[in-house]
Design a protein around this nucleic acid. Sequence first.
RNA 1: GCGCCGUUGGUGAAGUGGUUAACACGCUAGUUUGUGGCACUAGUAUGCAUGAGUUCGAUUCUCAUACGACGCCCCA
Length: 498
Amino acid sequence: MIQRQKGCSDIYGREAKVWKYVDTVIDAIMEKYNYNYIRTPIFEATELFHRGVGETTDIVTKESYDFEDKGGRKITLRPEGTAGVVRSYIENKMYGDVSQPIKVYYNGTMYRYERPQSGRDRELTQFGMEILGSDDPLSDAEIISAAVNVYKMLGLKKLVVHLNTLGDDESRKQYREALIDYFKPHIKEFCEDCQNRLKKNPLRILDCKVDAENEILKNAPKTLDYLTEESRNRFEKVQEFLDIMQIQYEINPNIVRGLDYYNHTVFEIEAKVEGFGSNNVIGAGGRYNGLVNQLGGPQTACVGFASGIGRIVMALELEKVQLPIVDSIDLFLLYVNEDEKKYAAYLTQELRTAGFIVETEYTGRSLKGQFKQADRLNSKFTCVLNSEDLNNNEIKIKNNKTKEEEVISLDVLIYYLDEHLNSDLFGDDCDCGCGCQEGVECTCGDDCKCKHDCDCDENCDCGCQEGVECTCGDDCKCKHDCDCDENCDCGCHCHHEK
RNA sequence: GCGCCGUUGGUGAAGUGGUUAACACGCUAGUUUGUGGCACUAGUAUGCAUGAGUUCGAUUCUCAUACGACGCCCCA
């Protein structure tokens, strides 16, 4: 069997719906903030990332997907999105556009040759946004606000925005030297990684997990002490704008971004949810005023942000956010003989064109099997096509929620569905008309209580097994209540410790 | 690149150096129910990641590889 490549994943089924939903929310929010969608190539000249992202960064030195194409060109699969956007900005001379600044967002796959772990794949999907051509602290605040708003609209609540500044190049340089001077006499007391960091990137020592409790580290000089007047000023302005926008944040002097191009504002957004792995930063960004110039464009002030979709999806799951994902259909057409099947073919076509979600049978199941299938698909209505009825220009339609069945004229079928699908008929337990069933995940997206009313106990019909992890998504007790011992006959085989 | 654990059917999984590898769920068909959702009966293949080794014999022991999970580094 040919397996998928290491660190890559197939996203399908319900998970794919979640991803699509996240995309639609991103698109909607970005539209409000007036960012334009940009698509840049997945591969670029290797040099772009070396010069842009930084020769010393890990994502270039050891995580890079480099190859030569048949023409001998040195190519790299993009490990992040900013370098490509900046290249495009320069190449297309966007700095000359009448409308400034340029605000763009992207959403696509990135590639990093890493060892996979929780929240980290070799192929990852990131969405990100950039404001190119503005040095105004308001744009820093806007980027953060837009990012937070995307998360909020998705329903994420347990987030912490960590904010810091690296200052301008001068501040950064001085601070770096100060850190080296400070750590050098004591470096033997630090972990091996930190000893390496001292030369390579002393700022990294600050967020070392191993030495976090070390007093020397705690008393290390802070960035804020080394800021130039101007840098300090603009940092305060950023905070002021965030306050006005009512975006909550925490100043965290230990936030140091890994990519070389950052200066001034840097931030990370952390998901504070139980169960997240060690990679719980779902988005991060900052200002990069030097990058455009460094890549051959005019001096241009920019600020940006990027977020991993995979990590967002993980956060949504861990926070158990209810998403408005449709996983029901309007009507299932059942049939027995060949004539009825032909009519089913005709009717599905008609009704789909009219805007309904319609399914029928494709695998030759018995009538009984077709009913089962209709249930599995959460069909709101079912019709058993019957030649006799059809000859009389009639059709029998059953409401799967109320179990009521009636015979109606074929001429009014569309009106019938239209009326009943949008009425309150669905949902004795709620008035949202979503048609959900107890014990089945409600997808109406309203704040209805259908979901929470599932009071299934051990014998719930969600299909899970006692003693086996229940995946029905409800808060059912199937899993936790099994207290059988070895010889029970519940079939759970959960084998408690003997 | 380093560390640690794992890999049995569509799914959850038991299990053993040696005849037909449990059990449950799911699925399909049949009986019954006025057309399903309950119950009962039957069926569900090529076998225990791949390759080598130890052995009379390995799914079970050893090694390598691949992949998965988690952690370090680093990063979203």
